[in-house]
Design a protein around this nucleic acid. Structure first.
Lengths: 117, 117
DNA sequence: TTTGATACCTGGAATATCCAGGTATATGCG
DNA sequence: CGCATATACCTGGATATTCCAGGTATCAAA
């Protein structure tokens, strides 16, 4: 492990970018750079995903038809707007449920739970 | 993607095996196979980690000195007992906190939160 | 003797995230 | 004008994690 090298796969964050993107797009159509900034604002210090993480996920969502795209030029710069599809909404619901189940299971083992018995 | 192939890195589970192992070992010394079974019991349907996932993590913990080991023969079979170290306990506390922070941040964005404002 | 449980292990595949770099346009400042 | 900064897009390669599928060996029960 060379110090300062890429620490990939941070603990517990696997799948989080996809979930966050779908969640944000469930509210309204947004473009890539806007999503990057929105995630930095919404998730703050704890979750930090840069462009290098977000754009590839966005392309994956597109190829799996969970989002649709539209190009638009705004004052000389091209933006690619992403819009969630019906399939995408279904996936969001599933992922959110999966997240809660996983988080609850871990909490249970950790002993934080409001576990009976 | 060939159907039936290994689906590695399931969403949200990154780092969970390590956290669970440290948590279980915080209670008492245990051996590998016992830990595998304990995780299957404790985490049930949701979190399912097989031997192929657990043993490598156990070896990683050992080489990082988060656990110490001891061999013992019990009725013809050799067991390797793992015991958490002081460093391991520190790591457990950190990981548990990290888990909660991450889970809370995601929940906040999902909108489950008891978020004010 | 064959099955199943116990108890350990690993190689290679698949996948996710991240750093560091890239391209290009517009805008503000000295 | 020249330069830095912000906007807006993108990718290659490194690193890390998990999992399947397979392996070894002992012991007990059928």
């Amino acid at each position: 492990m060379i110090p300062g090298m890429a620490r990939t796969n941070p603990d517990f964050q696997n799948g989080v970018p996809e979930l966050l993107l779908l969640r944000l797009l469930a509210g309204r159509e947004m473009y890539g750079y806007e999503l990057v900034k929105a995630i930095q604002t919404a998730a703050g210090e704890t979750l930090r995903f840069g462009e290098g993480s977000i754009y590839p996920v966005l392309h994956g969502l597109q190829s799996r038809k969970l989002v649709s795209t539209r190009k638009q030029e705004v004052s000389g710069r091209v933006r690619i707007y992403y819009k969630i599809t019906a399939t995408g909404r279904k996936r969001l619901v599933e992922m959110a449920a999966e997240f809660r189940r996983t988080a609850d299971a871990v909490r249970l083992v950790l002993g934080d739970g409001d576990a009976p018995a």
